[in-house]
Design a protein around this nucleic acid. Structure first.
Lengths: 348, 348
DNA sequence: CCGTTAATTGGTAGCGCTACCAGATTGCAT
DNA sequence: ATGCAATCTGGTAGCGCTACCAATTAACGG
């Protein structure tokens, strides 16, 4: 009973069965268990059964850290989005998760809060996990982030936007084109003083604004006083406030292209409250086509964006690349669709 | 730009600098580098500087898999929510992320799609990572999931609801009480035939419905025909449809308690469209108090829930427990607040 | 009978890091 | 000088798993 110093380490390996325990119980070598779990075809049926029941009896769960260390890659995909609470990105993420299927891939989700610095920091943290792929939002990475991504030894997908110069792969649509399309539509149906209202002017919003400006200019209607922007986060409340500001500045404005649907909703509520008839007195268009736009009263014209599909395509492309397939098309344009509704149906 | 850079998995040991490389460059032992990174206080300032610059020069990023394997715990927190796209949970998750601060904790987010089976599966996958803590939604885990959680050797926080019998810790509020409070309010201001409309009747919705029933019964106004529920996912569109159904069945109904704000918005839009005056002809109340409720026209009565705070408290409690502190209060009630607005201000 | 191939299975040697302990150095009291 | 604790640093031995290769067996043709 003289205390021979226990060489066991207290905290380590406490409890959980290891692959060696399973191997012993099944009467096979550890490596065979490993294979039975990862490449069952290479193990005979009898052993597979024995191993399966040993796994079951012991409640064995493979340690993914050890697996990642031994095989120099983790079944982890890093995803960076600017905001978790923005419904638009939530739907993209949902598409990504749906594309996971029953693979045992894990998603590491990072919220950059629209900050390039934070994006860089998270990228570094993610890389510490040796991810199998990375999905990032937008095309305007900081030089540092871009360097990290270019040096990353895994597939990279940029989502939401398109650009000239993909790091690796890309899924998105043209914000410029969609902004221009909405604006042209409003001009076509007869609105003349079409305002632009935008909060949180991130790069995608800037490109939509550029599309708006292009359409206004080509119609000879451009007027900088019609543009109201802010770097504050977007909200329905803030949409209402910005609209009040806009109409105080230009009382004759007759339509508003809102940078997103939240703002459009705020404008609609304010028009209802102030008894400004929509669409006759004021036309309204939003962006993203949230589900409620078609139910609103009046229903609101918006630009349908395929957010779920963007996430889904991104993960599909990433998984294909992980499997060694290099698709010929590395840039996928999922497009957009202008949904014309009551809010811009100007009575003739 | 001919052939794509092969992003095949790197061979063992290829590429990335290890802690040994840093140690060699800094002229110290590997363990000292490890300490300098994790417990800087235990390393002299000179060495710290040398190590820091070696890290910088080599672009060293610690391998978190190796770290997790060696220390038998990963800096990972598993979070399970029923739906990613539901704004309510997105805000909870946002609170969790905010509580991470600049710790190098990672969040593994799982979407159970309101399925107990999926919850169990994800729990097993998460456990394979040896997480430092787990956060799960609700109190109605399957027996299997509950067993896994009770056996887990890490802190567990159940969020969103309260219950008699916490697995470990709990942060939420009473759905029954909040449902009863709204209904009582509507009865107090004079509504008599208060309908309940609810989609996706998950356990929390069921408890709100129970609160509604209690309030109706205590006022002697209970009538099962006033209740419309569905297991379908909630949406603004579906809220409108259910309202049409409800009012067709009970044309005399004079108020609606909507199980969530999406539905309330659908009801509001339908009332606007059908020229049913709100609040005089129809009173409307929602649940969760999304930001737009106060801006809607008319503004909509709702129950303020502290979603961000729930996430924040959950992560704070988890981190405290990870640090070995066991708080005496393991069940935190963050409460709720009835926000009375125009939609239930019945003209006297 | 041997040799060859294919199909299985197992052993060995790490992956990169940290827990544990030991050794070295310093400061201070004896 | 000696002792002793406090402070700092390094070596060793794995953590649990898989890449790599060797060994075994069965199957088959010559």
């Amino acid at each position: 009973m003289s205390d021979a110093p226990l060489r066991q380490r207290s905290r380590r390996g406490a409890g959980r069965p290891t692959i060696a325990d399973v191997a012993k119980r099944a009467g096979v070598g550890a490596i065979t268990v490993s294979r039975a779990l990862r490449e069952p075809d290479r193990v005979s049926i009898e052993l597979r059964k024995q191993i399966a029941s040993a796994v079951e009896e012991l409640g064995y769960v493979p340690d993914s850290n050890a697996r990642a260390l031994a095989s120099a890659r983790a079944d982890v995909i890093g995803v960076l989005i600017p905001s978790l609470t923005n419904n638009v990105f939530a739907e993209v993420v949902s598409g990504i998760y749906d594309g996971l299927g029953d693979s045992n891939l894990q998603v590491l989700l990072g919220d950059t809060h629209y900050s390039g610095m934070e994006e860089e920091r998270l990228l570094r943290v993610f890389l510490g996990q040796r991810p199998s792929a990375l999905i990032v939002s937008g095309v305007d990475q900081t030089p540092g982030a871009r360097a990290i991504l270019e040096a990353a030894s895994c597939p990279v997908v940029q989502i939401m936007e398109l650009g000239e110069d993909p790091i690796d792969m890309m899924v998105g649509f043209s914000h410029f084109d969609s902004g221009r399309a909405v604006t042209r539509h409003m001009i076509e149906v007869g609105y003349r003083e079409v305002a632009f209202i935008g909060a949180r002017m991130d790069p995608r919003s800037q490109r939509r604004l550029a599309g708006y400006k292009a359409a206004m200019t080509e119609a000879g209607l451009s007027d900088p006083r019609l543009i109201t922007t802010s770097t504050q986060p977007s909200s329905v409340t803030f949409g209402r406030e910005m609209f009040r500001e806009a109409i105080a500045r230009v009382p004759t404005l007759d339509a508003v292209f809102c940078n997103n649907d939240d703002i459009a909703l705020g404008v609609l509520f304010e028009c209802n409250r102030a008894a400004l008839g929509v669409p006759d007195k004021i036309g309204i268009a939003g962006f993203n086509d949230l589900e409620m736009m078609k139910v609103a009263y009046p229903s609101i014209t918006s630009v349908r964006t395929y957010r779920h599909q963007i996430g889904r395509r991104a993960i599909d492309m990433a998984r294909a690349a992980m499997a060694g397939e290099r698709p010929e098309t590395r840039v996928v344009d999922v497009g957009f669709k202008l949904e014309i509704r009551e809010s811009t149906q100007r009575g003739a």
